[in-house]
Simulated scan of single mutants.
Amino acid sequence: MGIRGQKTEDGRQMLACRAAARIAGMRGTAATKLPPSDRGFTLIELVVVIIIVVVVMGLFLNRALYYQEQAEKVAMEEVAGAVQSALTMQYGRILVRGNPSDAAALVRDNPMNWLQKPPHNYAGEFYAPTPLAVDSGNWVFDLKSRELLYVPRNAGHFKPGKDGEKWIRFHVAMSYEAPRAPSLQNASPELTGVLFEPVEPYMWF
């Protein structure tokens, strides 16, 4: 074989080596390609995840506010119940002293004075306050109307009374009954008790 034939053979071998290297490189690239499960989030997938997280957080926040408002209502009712118990004790002491007529003074008294310790959210006495003048979540005593007022902090499920104001007004009411004896039918009604009750009906839940 001559020199020219040897060069031709060498050229063919070089071309074959280059082709083999090129094929091997293509195989290596295909082998290192990541499967779909190993790739990161696409933009659409990321947006969907964000929307789901926002919806879940919104639902959780709504439920948290709901239970928080319920807890506030229960706390308010506990204070009202404590005042009613203290009022009953005051009325009982008046009866023990034998002066039922003194019970009329309870109507103008500040019910918080009957408690051993006022609640932490009792803000004191005010003259003719408005709901905006009282911090929400507090009790106040109105020196003009002689009523105990509560202004809700969480009022998403609260419907006020006829006055349309966002508060609950309590007062001391005297309970009377007509005499049961036939001979006393024309007599004045008898005082039978005292109640601590809302001035106007309201709805809370």
Rank of each mutant, 00 (worst) to 15 (best):
I44N: 15
V49K: 15
I51S: 13
I52G: 07
V53A: 15
V54Y: 10
M57D: 13
N62I: 09
N62S: 11
R63H: 12
L65Y: 08
Y67S: 00
Y67R: 03
E69P: 01
E69T: 02
E72N: 03
V74D: 04
V74P: 05
M76Y: 06
M76L: 02
E77Y: 10
A80H: 09
G81Q: 08
A86L: 12
A86M: 04
Y91G: 01
R93L: 09
I94T: 07
V96H: 05
R97E: 08
R97G: 07
G98R: 06
P100G: 05
S101Q: 09
S101D: 12
D102G: 08
A104H: 07
A105D: 09
L106Y: 04
L106I: 04
V107A: 14
R108T: 06
D109R: 14
N110Q: 10
M112K: 05
M112T: 00
L115P: 07
L115W: 11
Q116K: 15
Q116A: 15
P118R: 01
H120M: 13
G124H: 09
E125N: 14
F126T: 06
Y127D: 14
P129R: 04
L132D: 08
V134G: 01
G137S: 08
D142T: 03
D142C: 04
D142L: 04
E147I: 00
L148M: 04
L149R: 02
L149K: 00
L149D: 01
P152R: 02
P152C: 09
A155H: 04
F158I: 00
F158V: 00
K162A: 12
D163I: 04
G164S: 00
G164A: 01
W167F: 03
I168H: 02
F170P: 02
V172Q: 06
A173W: 05
A173L: 02
E177N: 10
A178I: 11
R180V: 12
R180Y: 12
P182W: 00
S183P: 10
Q185G: 14
